[in-house]
Simulated scan of single mutants.
Amino acid sequence: MNSAPIMNITASDHRIYRSRRIVIKIGSAVLIDKKSGLVRTAWMESLAADVNRLRHAGIEVLIVSSGAVALGCHRLRINHIRSKLKARRPTSAIGQIMLAHAYQEVMFHNGITTAQILLSTDDTEQRRPHLYLRSTINDLLKLGVVPVINENDTVSTTSCSFGDNDRLSARIAQVANADTLIILSDIDGLYTSDPRCNAAARHIPEVKYVTAEIEAMAGNAGSSYTSGGMVTKLAAAKIAAAAGCQTVIANGLEPNPIYRIDSAGSCTWFCEVASSLTTRKRWIASSLDPRGQLILNSGALQALIAGKSLLPAGVIEVIGTFERGDVVTLHAPDRALCGRGLITYASHDAKQIAGLKSREIETTLGYHRSDEIVHRNDLVLNECSIPK
């Protein structure tokens, strides 16, 4: 097996405390007691102590917390509901107020002021709400407040949701320009295969790049290893890395989980990727909800690699329904993903001008907004799209 993307370390060497801003993601399996179905209050007290240690070291903290649906299910005595979206909405509405109350009570008891933020995908995937969210987070942190963030499941739909709080936490790390994302789960990081099924599975202490080889270690999305889930955690680590944020996946079941990581507890670190991208381009690159696809000819792909904009003449096919300014994915002639960008024309018009010369835009549409269908300042290419 090629071990290039894997690095070996023996201790955390206080990596957490080198951070300026940290996002802590807490899964339901960690926060909610399996027997009682209620918040593990004593554990949350220990988390508050950890948060205070970070704050006293000058580190700003944000929390992304699951648990609302689980608490709502317990209150209503409902089981096996996770995949039923209609049932998630009322149980989330009931459980979210219980979850917020638990955080407020425990954190306030430890001298920490919290603020609740509930998000839908538009709040991170649309540029203007994204900027408002960033501003709100920055304002709260300046006031010494710890934001507690969750997806607003009461209004989410299957076609418009984060899908899991792992990816939401990575998106929050990108929005907040965090240095470190800590994902607390019921497993102490990544293994070469599912350790619950394979006693020979080897724990991986650090990953430099999330490659296809690394992703294969997470198994299939439906396995016990991934339900809850290693697949989504790797996806989160990949999103965070692209935003210049390191990620650590650790077992959070024991008290003082952050202290344990810093004390060389078993975990997996994922390195950030050095990037010269602007904040705007990082947002484009890490978008979770592209609205359409543009299939490009080889000439257009070469022009993009050379640093030029995408013209309508370079587009073979337009797929999907989207509005002007939405994020779309860019694909090579063989359909391989080669980048993302902000589209200049809505899908109805983009389909009409695909393959045409720029001088033909006004004749075809009756107006001319831009020669480019995606401007070079609004697109990001994947490294894999650039020939060696």
Rank of each mutant, 00 (worst) to 15 (best):
P257S: 14
T226N: 09
G228Q: 05
I249C: 03
C267K: 02
G229A: 06
D262A: 08
T226W: 08
W269I: 06
S266P: 00
G244Y: 00
L234Q: 02
I214P: 01
E272Q: 12
I214V: 14
A236T: 05
A243T: 10
A250Y: 10
A241G: 10
M217Q: 10
E254R: 14
I258K: 04
K233M: 01
N220A: 10
A242V: 11
S266T: 05
F270P: 03
A237L: 09
S227F: 10
T232D: 02
K233I: 04
G252S: 11
C267F: 06
K238Y: 05
I258A: 09
M217W: 12
N251P: 00
A240V: 05
V248C: 06
S266N: 02
S266K: 12
E254Q: 13
A236K: 06
L234G: 03
A221L: 12
I249A: 09
Y225K: 02
S223V: 06
E272A: 14
L253T: 12
A236R: 05
A241T: 02
S227R: 13
G222Y: 05
K233E: 03
E254F: 09
P257N: 13
A250C: 06
I258F: 05
I239K: 06
S224R: 09
A264S: 15
T268W: 09
I249G: 02
M230H: 06
N251G: 01
G265V: 07
A242E: 13
K238F: 06
A241I: 04
G229F: 04
G228N: 07
M230Y: 02
A242M: 13
L253F: 01
P255H: 13
S266Q: 07
G244E: 00
S263K: 13
T232N: 08
E215D: 15
S223I: 08
S266M: 13
S263P: 04
G228D: 05
Q246D: 08
G265S: 07
C271Q: 14
